[in-house]
Design a protein around this nucleic acid. Structure first.
Lengths: 196, 196
DNA sequence: TTGCGTGTTGCACGATCGTATAATAACGCT
DNA sequence: AGCGTTATTATACGATCGTGCAACACGCAA
């Protein structure tokens, strides 16, 4: 416990970010204290201040890291789907209902970020940036399926909302429906958008 | 400041619940401390323990109260819509995009509750109860529109998800779309469900 | 091997947290 | 009018919060 183990700043920062994500997932936003995070990472509380200059900055870095991982997982699903535009769009949407996206711990992390975005302007900016990228990717995939350019923006808003709502309830109160039903619902909705 | 003003327990409880809702909306879940709530209500911090036996119980009571107000507002919109089943369903859905539901403060309150539901079993139970009622009402309105009974459950899940997702983004990052566009999106979705 | 830079620890500090408790004051009842 | 009930306040207590700081120790250069 008391033996210092020296690490490169970059590696230590990633350790702390990973520990913050675990704490956020298990204890919620209220339990994300400097001491809890430091204990989870197996280091001293002072390291948070030393590497990030405060717990707020650490949480913000964790959000950016987790959001990048989510975007990467969705992109990997698209790449795995091949070349058919319809299949790529479906893969991007349905990836939200499978691991590692459809995870109660990830939902808890996300909710913690939402609850902090109200008080922290930097967090709100990070959130807006991430969601804009998400919708932009959705618009591009819809356009590739032949959706009229004039309707792409609103269609992306609808798809994003449906996916978010399904993902939220799927993780929050699982039991009322399952991932297969979520895929069926989004499949019908996408079919309507692409056809009409 | 130091003059005690006696009130009936019921009235005082409602005062504290209203103050908690205001604090949750303005300061978020993290700022909902006993002292902040008591100051907002203009009373002493000890009253929270006296009337609710702890801040956790007060927050839970606030959730039930706010959820009941939301349900009542949605029900009022249905009653105002008249007798046509399609109009009643549309009114129930579109009420979420108008005051007093489409409100940034209400969203902040809701997010605060979500963030607490992870750690508090009683809050999770209250949330599950409220959402089950919401979906059940939606199922009944869909059935009245002629949706096949076998499809009502899943259709209600989809509508609830779409509405929740639109409501969330409408309040959280307003600017990407407006309430009229949200109504257009849900209108198309409902038309698809009722027709097919 | 010696010395310097710095990652790391352990602790102290003030602020704030939730709650218990004794004193006070207002209301209903006889 | 006097009294009991209890809503209310003020205060105290221990725990925990975020952060600043001085000492320590590990790795690398000379």
């Amino acid at each position: 416990m008391s033996k210092p183990s020296r690490a490169t700043p970059e590696a230590r920062r990633l350790d702390l970010i990973a520990a913050t994500a675990r704490v956020l997932a298990s204890h919620g936003a209220g339990g994300a204290s400097v001491r809890t995070i430091a204990t989870e990472a197996g280091v001293s509380p002072g390291l948070v201040t030393h590497h990030f200059g405060g717990v707020a900055r650490l949480v913000e870095a964790t959000y950016d890291h987790v959001a990048a991982q989510v975007a990467q997982a969705l992109e990997a699903a698209v790449a795995r789907a091949g070349d058919d535009p319809r299949a790529r769009l479906a893969a991007y949407v349905e990836a939200s209902f499978a691991p590692p996206i459809a995870d109660a711990a990830l939902l808890a992390t996300w909710i913690a970020f939402w609850s902090m975005a109200r008080a922290d302007a930097a967090m709100a900016a990070s959130h807006a940036r991430h969601y804009a990228g998400y919708r932009a990717r959705l618009e591009a995939l819809l356009a590739a399926c032949g959706v009229a350019p004039a309707r792409c923006r609103l269609a992306a808003v609808g798809v994003a909302a449906l996916v978010d709502g399904l993902w939220l309830e799927l993780c929050l109160s699982s039991g009322t429906f399952d991932a297969a039903e979520a895929r069926a619902l989004t499949g019908d909705y996408l079919a309507m958008l692409v056809a009409g």
